[in-house]
Amino acid sequence: MIRMPDTAKIAISNQKGGVGKTTVAINIAGALNRLEHNVLFIDLDPQGNATEGLGLEEEYEAQPPTLFDALTDHKAREDIDSLIVSHSEMDVLPSNIDMTSIEPELTMAMRGRERLEQVIDSLNAEYDVIIIDCPPYLGNLTDNALLTAGNVLIPALAESTSKRALEILFDQIEVLEAEYDTHIRDLGVVANRIETTNEAKSMLAWFEEAFSDIPVWEIRKRVTLQRAFSAGCSVFEFEEECDMSAEFLAIAEDLERRFGLVEVTA
């Protein structure tokens, strides 16, 4: 008998803005697609950067029902599959401009931190991996992503300001774990937009020491990554080659191994 593994759910999170979180999320999703995995990308950021970075600007301005409705109204969740948009590399549940007003809605809602889980449970389509791109702040949406995924991958800049940002994120994870009696697994740190500076060299050494029990991947600053984003795809679909493709594939292969994303003969 062939047994397929459960869907892997991964939150890409760092509440510090400007770390290239969305670019990392898109390219990890693209790498997983290159490894022939069926990927759903959920843009949970009200700014819609991933929606734009996947060439879906019109979806961000779409009329209801949208992801906002699916998160706030149980009736809208009944037809959640209709909100999913096909992309050449992955399926996408896009963000929407209405999401900018969702935080107070979730604060007042019953089980407001569990709405994303309810949305995913309502899906009829099956996926190997669900990538959740979090907002660049802590709040109900990020809590939803962390609790739903149970796994977090953290992009961070190789600069000293990352230390405090990571401390705040892990403090919040500890609060969620205590309140919900759960465990949120740290999958690794993606040191992103690395440039050749003494500060970057020092921070990379700090990452390796501080996170000795999980992988630390290094993504160098490359203009091709931004060009691919502007073209609405990952570097794996972009017309220009990028040496960072190998690093994103290494991340995807590690996730594939750790989640058992292969057919298992029982």
Rank of each mutant, 00 (worst) to 15 (best):
V175A: 14
T197M: 05
E263Q: 10
F238M: 07
E208A: 12
A191G: 10
S202V: 14
I219L: 05
W217A: 03
V235W: 10
E209Q: 06
V235P: 03
E263I: 02
D213H: 02
E241W: 13
R193E: 03
L166M: 10
M203G: 03
E199M: 07
E253K: 13
M244Y: 10
L166C: 03
A178V: 10
A252N: 09
M244H: 01
A266H: 08
E167R: 11
K163W: 11
E247I: 13
F238T: 07
T196W: 13
A266N: 05
S212D: 14
R227D: 14
A200V: 08
M203V: 05
D254F: 06
T182M: 02
L225G: 08
I168S: 11
L166Q: 06
H183E: 07
H183F: 05
A252V: 06
R257V: 05
E237L: 15
A252R: 04
S212W: 11
A200T: 04
A250C: 13
E253M: 14
V190A: 00
R222C: 04
G188E: 03
K221N: 13
A200C: 10
Q172I: 09
I251Q: 03
E237H: 15
I184V: 00
F248M: 10
E167F: 11
F248N: 04
F207D: 04
E253D: 13
F207Y: 09
L255V: 00
V190F: 06
G260T: 05
T197F: 02
E256F: 13
V216H: 02
E240A: 09
A246F: 05
W217E: 08
